[in-house]
Design a protein around this nucleic acid. Structure first.
Length: 483
RNA sequence: GGGGCCAUGGUCUAGCCUGGUUAGGAUUCGCGGUUUGGGACCGUGCGGCCACAGUUCGAAUCUGUGUGGCCCCA
């Protein structure tokens, strides 16, 4: 059956339905442990594909893979004063069988406290720098109170890069590079536009000098951070003793960054932004099955249709991931099934097509049928690869653009955030501690609207007055409710 | 973190208020057959009251606790 909930009418319930048993079967929430989500095969196959794209991209930027344990000894979390912020939400392992462990172990809430003690051992000289490792296809653990599949979990899939540089200038270059990586994959390949912000000081990652985040707009008008980079300065280097001998034979602390595309959040955005009332709409490149062939058979002994389908399957499989669905279900069943799963291209072959040497082809994103000469099939599919991506990207970009509104007064800002969806662009006094009071006022007046920050590449000097306190504005900021 | 709703075969649901037959139906799934251009049909078969405790002669139903899910708000 098609989805009961409409995306435009009730996004939350639509989202729950599409991820579950009556939708695309991405997760199974019947596992019975809050915040711990069994990922079914379709979601894993999708995730693996874009993880791989991200892996290739960060490796191109000089990162190499490492894989560290899930468990970290207690003392590590105590070394960085601000990072201790994670402590209240840690999961602990305190026993091995019946034996109480001498050192309690915590499940990694993120990688800093396990990676940097190792960096301290691995990095010796300026010749080792920049030092760039990443780990992916791992999980991370935080005691969150509210959980939702792909948006917030107690366990979730993680991807993190950690770089050490000689200078602070290199850090900023890396921040920019990370934005490019995010853009090339998440926007370029997955069709998800985002805004890249420098976060206000009160909204930084624990222990970072600065945090930069990529915000994607979800259909209900809330933004979701789908990637972030942290300028760690030397703070972690000092806490974990990440030092190197410089060219003058002096010992120096490294400058560090870490970057994390949010694997779960990206998945949530693929589902939410591209999906429709018929199910998922997958970007061609990451679809586990790119083309499904549906036969239409009237007579049992009609071997011609089957033969044609097998021929097409064989031919197209050289270039694409193809499924010939010759199950017992009726064609209508198959259409609905594969549309729910988001397979980008469907080919229908019946007696009519065989006779006329034609093929019926359907794009998942617009669900329009087209009958073309068989000879043109491969060229058509080739064009769909880019056409589908372009089409879904443009829709997503249009939605983002249309949902950024400008406000010049506090009242206007509050009115927009309380009645409309999306982001509000406005003037703001300060992104350091002194601006936090104004941010709090906005949050209270708008039921949770947060200052997301100023655009990373915004080099202009803000003019005018803060929309809240009327003091001189120092930044143009964006405000939105968020996940 | 706060508030609300909820938990019955794989899925959806009736029964619960007012305790008492073998927990009813739809769909899915398996088998046999007829079918196949937008979720076909007939026959047949498998499968269920979230957990624990309490009240009771008797609990899906009442009470408590726990666990989990969904929605709204922080």
């Amino acid at each position: 059956m098609a989805l009961k909930n409409k995306k435009s009418q009730n996004f939350s319930e639509w989202y729950t339905e599409i991820t579950g048993e009556n939708g695309a079967k991405l997760v199974d929430m019947r596992y019975g442990v809050q915040g711990f989500v069994p990922h079914r095969t379709w979601s894993v196959q999708i995730i693996r594909r874009f993880e791989a794209l991200l892996e290739q991209q960060v490796e191109k930027d000089g990162y190499s893979p490492i894989l560290l344990p899930l468990l970290i000894p207690e003392e590590n979390i105590k070394k960085e004063k601000e990072h201790v912020e994670f402590a209240p939400e840690l999961f602990w392992v305190e026993r091995m069988g019946k034996t109480k462990l001498e050192t309690p172990l915590y499940l990694r809430p993120t990688g800093e406290s396990q990676i940097y003690p190792l960096y301290s051992l691995w990095i010796r000289s300026w010749k080792d720098l920049p030092w760039k490792n990443y780990q992916s296809r791992i999980t991370t653990y935080r005691g969150e109170s509210t959980t939702r599949p792909f948006l917030r979990g107690r366990e979730f899939i993680f991807f993190e890069t950690h770089a050490v540089f000689e200078t602070n200038e290199e850090v900023l270059k890396q921040v920019e590079k990370d934005m490019q990586i995010t853009s090339e994959i998440i926007t370029g390949e997955l069709g998800l536009p985002f805004l890249y912000f420098k976060r206000p000081s009160w909204d930084k990652f624990a222990g970072a000098d600065d945090t930069y985040g990529a915000d994607c707009l979800m259909p209900d008008g809330k933004v979701s951070q789908i990637a972030s980079t942290h300028d760690l300065g030397q703070r972690f280097a000092k806490a974990y003793n990440v030092k190197f001998i410089d060219q003058n034979e002096k010992s120096q602390f490294g400058y560090q960054t870490c970057f994390g595309p949010g694997i779960w959040r990206i998945m949530a955005a693929i589902i939410g932004v591209h999906g429709d009332d018929f199910g998922l709409v997958l970007p061609f490149k990451i679809a586990p099955i790119q083309i499904v062939i549906v036969p239409i058979v009237f007579e049992k002994n009609d071997k011609a249709v089957d033969r044609k389908c097998k021929e097409l399957e064989k031919k197209l499989s050289k270039q694409y991931r193809v499924k010939y669905d010759n199950s017992d279900n009726k064609p209508g069943w198959k259409y609905n099934e594969w549309e729910m799963l988001g397979v980008p291209v469907r080919i229908e072959v019946g007696p009519k097509e065989v006779k006329a040497k034609k093929i019926t082809i359907v794009r998942r994103d617009i669900r329009k049928r087209e009958t073309i000469a068989e000879k043109q099939l491969e060229r058509k599919i080739k064009s769909y690869e880019s056409v589908i991506l372009k089409s879904i990207s443009e829709n997503a970009e249009k939605f983002l653009r249309e949902n950024i509104k400008e406000a010049n007064t506090f009242e206007h800002l509050v009115k927009i955030l309380n009645t409309n969806k999306g982001l509000v662009k406005t003037k703001f006094c300060a992104l350091d501690k002194s601006g936090e009071k104004c941010a709090d006022k906005i949050q209270q007046a708008t039921d949770g609207g947060k200052v997301r920050g100023m655009l990373f590449d915004d080099k202009s000097r803000a003019s005018g007055k803060c929309v809240v306190c009327s003091k001189k504005a120092t930044a143009t900021v964006y405000i939105a409710k968020s996940y």
